[in-house]
Design a protein around this nucleic acid. Structure first.
Lengths: 232, 232
DNA sequence: CAAGCCGCTTGATTTTTGTCAAGCCAGCAA
DNA sequence: TTGCTGGCTTGACAAAAATCAAGCGGCTTG
């Protein structure tokens, strides 16, 4: 792998505290690859041969069963995915595909496990990362089980608004069909859900969204840090 | 804490590889308490002061929002809960209540974090545990998003049957109302779902269940190890 | 024993969500 | 330009699930 990528990878929480020798050793076995959009990187059920790091572009994690499919998460630069499978040396639970042209680092799982065994700073960083991921999924579970689709959309919009800087107008960072899947509904229903939020001053034009009545929307959405605050 | 409990706690995956001195030090700060049924042990949002270990009885992990409530998991002996919150020193995301008379060990979170920093075997065990928990929630997420309530019930029954030994007849280990909540439906709907499985030879009498036509039920449920195998 | 409670079930109804079919429209290529 | 394509929207309908109300039956308690 070209050394030019080292600093950005090294800067990740996961790698920043580890021994330099160990980091070099991990990087020696790793390689970077460029993928076009819509390429399936891994399939659920396959053995976890590589820990992946997204350097640029974005990756969709999804799963299928009985002819149905659902998006579980989107990975954006710079972060890793399928850490848990790598650590447990267990099959992937999700498939992954590129959403756009993406540059991805592949680090052999056995190297990760080997370094994990000898570098306790790395092990600790992995703990922090896994605990974070675990809590994120729990929040998502609560979102799904406690809220209707309209409420999920409203809260998603409020979160996205905050991420985009907090202004009344902002842009969706998903294709709508995939947003629907992430939120656990059909595209048709998402369309109707957007209309259902019009009474709260919501205006949607393609990818652009604007919240006309912030107070009313929040009153309806009832955002809760224990579900919606992803830093917690 | 009475030393008589040490061996059973020590035997947990989480603690078995750690240094004896560190284990003793953890146990010194810990204490055991007996709780009656239906006692709320922790509330979501509270700071994570203790790592909990269930020695006997059982504990329901649940969450509320906007007047609704849902069960997210049940903890049975002998295992720990709210490890992730303890590690991240973050507020609990779920509340916990005893389902029956339960004996529970409370280990101060700061002790856990301190030992975690100095005992790398302990840190590694925590990684394994967290990765396992993470994967369990992902499976549950897939179950919720990809299956109808009837399918979820059918697969739950098949899992439970396997846990109970694999015979055609077995018992539910949940109160039905809580099973409904775990499966993400109302008690009324669970009742109807049981009836909906009659064509597959299902007979339910109170807590006792018997599967008349195993092959047909499996054909309907389409169990998948990447969702239903909790050892994976 | 009777009364009352609680969990479970059932039926009727409403709400929510998904499905199917059709049409719209921006973007793109010939 | 024309004619695609694919994502999005819309309407009509069907299915799934929640809600409301009532009743059943086992259990405890006075």
């Amino acid at each position: 792998m070209p050394e030019s990528h080292y600093p950005e990878i090294r800067a990740l929480n996961l790698f920043e505290g580890m021994d330099e020798t160990h980091f070099q050793s991990l990087m020696r076995g790793a390689y970077v690859q460029n993928f076009p959009p819509q390429i399936e990187l891994i399939g659920e059920g396959e053995p976890s041969d590589f820990l992946h790091v997204v350097l640029s572009g974005s990756v969709d994690l999804f799963s299928s069963w009985n002819g149905r499919e659902t998006s579980l998460a989107t990975v954006r630069p710079i972060s890793t995915f399928i850490l848990a499978a790598t650590i447990r040396n267990a099959p992937y639970l999700m498939s992954a595909r590129t959403l756009e042209k993406s540059r991805i680092v592949l680090i052999p799982s056995q190297d990760v496990r080997a370094i994990f065994d000898v570098d306790s700073n790395f092990a600790r960083a992995i703990v922090a990362e896994l605990a974070q991921c675990y809590r994120a999924v729990i929040k998502s579970q609560k979102d799904l089980k406690l809220r209707t689709s309209l409420e999920r959309l409203a809260n998603y919009l409020l979160r996205q608004q905050k991420r985009a800087g907090g202004g009344a107008a902002f842009e969706l960072d998903f294709e709508k069909r995939r947003l629907a899947s992430v939120l656990g509904m059909t595209p048709e229903n998402l369309s109707r859900a957007f209309k259902g939020l019009q009474p709260y001053g919501l205006i949607v034009d393609g990818i652009r969204v604007s919240i006309g009545n912030q107070a009313e929307l929040e009153k309806f959405a009832k955002p809760n840090p224990l579900i919606d605050d992803f830093t917690l």
